[in-house]
Nucleic acid binder design. Structure first.
Lengths: 225, 225
DNA sequence: CGTATTCTTGAGCGACTTCAAGTATGGTGG
DNA sequence: CCACCATACTTGAAGTCGCTCAAGAATACG
């Protein structure tokens, strides 16, 4: 059902275009470990103990939850400079996987908390990062109450806001990932891409590349944020 | 469309049953102001500057977003001891309203951040509260990809986990609030309550009171969390 | 007791799902 | 380099769940 895709030409370019080491909150002020993951590599699993916090250095990561009945839900996508793994429990409720060849900076959760206790600036930045994550999750919830066209529209706007180069975005995630993030089927995603293209809202040079000619018009139509 | 309900007998009891002052993260270690709000009173508005952080002392609060096309979305419900207003931007993206007569402890955002910078324990607790809020938002997103029956089932489980007395819950929110939280219409919520009742999954002594006779069975069926 | 409001129920319709092919694309071995 | 296979993506047709529109029942409060 959700089998291994291959590293194709497009995703390889994505992994590459941010290959310069991205310096984020953690890499600047902590000692930790850099880890590399292959396409689809597992970073941590649903149910594993929460011992680390992660920062994407290069590449792209998704968090995934498999429900008892087999349904798959994507919690979020994370790109260079972004933190993930911020669970408040002792067990991860989602697993994390690299979507393309990626590099991740890993620090011990306890060390980070300890350091933040004696470093006010770090504590503030951490708080800011978590507050930002709350907003993103709220936006995610907001997407899920709209029509398929609005969901995909605001999704593309959000992703474009984070990894576009000019007016074009190269999607590191598959249609299935998008479908599982937006709570619709892969067929609906595909049909909706076709509709948006025929309406000239987007262009699709190929399945993984999207061009958004008029982002402000899109924002108005799909009122993202 | 969404007009003012009145303070009825049931919600009055809810406001009352936690009338003992609840001591949370903020009330314990900060100086701030206690504010009282009437049923449906506005605590802050969508678009207003973010200057404070709030803790429910007594009562119940909802956060609400009105989309440009008039649709209404509930971001979350907050009960005694819980924090809200944790926005990462300068403007609130949701407004906050009391659902019943409520008391709220208000502290200046800047003061809190400053204090946290020099008080490691407070910083850690704040981080824990925000991480918990992230989890709740993820759960909210998770609810929105299910069927109406599953949405209402997991919603009732979540609320029961927070404000049940024995196996019964008194809902401070209207059907419209539940509908706008779960992304379905009020008619669907009403019908689904009827279905759950006819299946003996719940009992409804009256519209605002719900009895969950077998919560563990519910958890299995609606696999909440 | 009357009226406003909330909640419930019904019938028809539409958007998304399901099931089922068909097409395109990347990788592999000859 | 090309033929082949596996996988991802697209398209079509029929079914279903939730929405819309409409009315009726229950509840709160003057």
């Amino acid at each position: 059902m959700h089998s291994q895709p291959r590293q194709n030409e497009v995703t390889a370019r994505i992994a590459g275009h941010r290959s310069e080491a991205h310096s984020g909150v953690l890499t600047q002020c902590m000692n930790g470990v850099r880890m590399k993951f292959q396409n689809n590599g597992s970073i941590y699993g649903q149910g594993e103990p929460v011992e680390h916090i992660y920062e994407v250095v290069r590449g792209a990561v998704r968090t995934v939850k498999i429900l008892p009945d087999g349904r798959r839900q994507i919690g979020g996508f994370y790109f260079a400079g972004e933190l993930f793994g911020l669970d408040d429990r002792n067990e991860h409720s989602f697993s994390a996987e690299a979507m393309v060849k990626s590099e991740v900076f890993v620090v011990k959760r306890k060390s980070l908390i300890n350091l933040a206790q004696h470093n006010g600036e770090l504590a503030e930045r951490l708080l800011s990062v978590t507050a930002h994550e709350i907003r993103r999750q709220q936006n995610h919830a907001l997407m899920l109450v709209k029509t398929a066209e609005e969901r995909l529209g605001s999704f593309l706007l959000e992703i474009a806001g984070r990894i576009s180069i000019g007016d074009s975005v190269e999607l590191p995630m598959s249609r299935q990932d998008i479908a599982d993030y937006l709570g619709v089927t892969i067929e609906t995603i595909s049909r909706t891409f076709t509709i948006l293209t025929s309406r000239s809202v987007i262009r699709l040079p190929n399945a993984r590349a999207v061009i958004l000619p008029d982002r402000s018009k899109l924002s108005r139509e799909f009122h993202y944020d």
